[in-house]
Design a protein around this nucleic acid. Sequence first.
DNA 1: ATTATCTATAGATCTATAGATAATGC
DNA 2: ATTATCTATAGATCTATAGATAATGC
Lengths: 261, 261
Amino acid sequence: MSGGTDEGPRRVGRPRADQLRPESGRPPREELLCAAAELFTLKGYAATTTRAVAERAGMRQATMYHYFAGKEELLAELLESTVAPSLALSRRLLADAARPAAVRLWELCRSDVLLLCGGPYHLGALYLLPELQGARLGQFRRMRDELREAYRTLLRATAVGDELAGDKAGLSLRNDLVFGLIEGVMLVRRSDPGRPVAAFAEAAADAALRVAGLDRADERADGQVGGRVSARAVGPGRPPSPPGRPRPGGCDPTPAGAPRP
Amino acid sequence: MSGGTDEGPRRVGRPRADQLRPESGRPPREELLCAAAELFTLKGYAATTTRAVAERAGMRQATMYHYFAGKEELLAELLESTVAPSLALSRRLLADAARPAAVRLWELCRSDVLLLCGGPYHLGALYLLPELQGARLGQFRRMRDELREAYRTLLRATAVGDELAGDKAGLSLRNDLVFGLIEGVMLVRRSDPGRPVAAFAEAAADAALRVAGLDRADERADGQVGGRVSARAVGPGRPPSPPGRPRPGGCDPTPAGAPRP
DNA sequence: ATTATCTATAGATCTATAGATAATGC
DNA sequence: ATTATCTATAGATCTATAGATAATGC
């Protein structure tokens, strides 16, 4: 029926030596990224050798250099793939003046958590690496700064933002705490990886709004305190999948260059 | 006046080769720990070589092995020194049934943040290392688990704990979020290291209580929302220095083995 | 011819040990 | 004699490059 993904060894180039890996069907570049994601998050960046990555991806160490200039380029690409979808979403949310800022902020938090924890590997762990200061990572850092600014703009537009109107430092601190909670969400996830991701992401987004200082309104509304989540009740009946379908880490079956509607 | 710390080269053993380091006066073991703290937090554990640590401490690479069996032992000792004071404080707080649990929880959070961010190096960054799974680190992990349990017990004893009485999973999730915020506080600190630590620690503790779901009581009391911190107002007129004077990372001038009253 | 891979390896580490050495202490 | 350090180095990596090789494409 479907266009037979049946692979006879029809590929150009010298065949691989040991066929240890079960031939996932993904292009080698992607396979390298996945291997790197797994190893970097599990064993750490510096502790992962190019040989480990390459061999995990089913090829010999030297072959990796056919696709990437080095280890740092792998890291850069992984990191960028982790911010990019959130950044895109944040732009859409900033433009969407119709919905309350608190709801949009919640949405951004939730989606961000899904991105950082949702994939097969918890790419969020990469945010904790000291290597983030590295040279090749400027692009990533700029994107991340823009994302932080988006958080800040949304926070500023909420009720708490009004209260802190004069207090720039206070607002920044609040925002950094919110942003830090989201980026550090890995630590929470690590301590109990068994929880279903979707519910976890919502709980984390709730917590982020509480850090911001934004759960009072709802609780005044329905009297529920703490037992049930808050901001979720505020949200519109929006389906939980964020637009643009952010691929969780680029390691799922879908090809990386999926079209954006 | 004081007991002259005047050092003529009165030390036993072969003298050091290059006297690059200005001879801090601390014993070499401590000096190694400080060097390790600085390098591990700044450049990462795996990326730091034994040579770098030793030379930073003013001695040759091989000499390090006279004091530590290897790199992992340095890490273990640093990590343990970071939990130990919090753990001790948590035991005292658990015993202190007189004060409200929320206040005690706040106190624990604040002190923990000071420990993780207060010293000259931000040891909290070590908590983010993937190497935490390492073999030699069992002792540290046990201590940390006990600390998490203390958080949980305190949280359980608050108003929120009552609300979540039946919901064990819910309580755990809350607690992990609180604990995660505190342990990940490094990420917040990193984004603006200029803020005064003391105020920052209080703001982080406030945020932790909000994550827990615990700022409503105060706000009902004084009507102040978000602008001014909450739990601080609840606290008794307790001086801000926690008992036992947790040394921030063991790298301050005081000798490491200071007596505990 | 082009492509994807391989093998081989130079050069640069890095860790941990062996054994020498230069102080003080007795 | 004891101690703290040093120098030297074996053995094990690890990265990145050079150059060969085995496919397909034309």
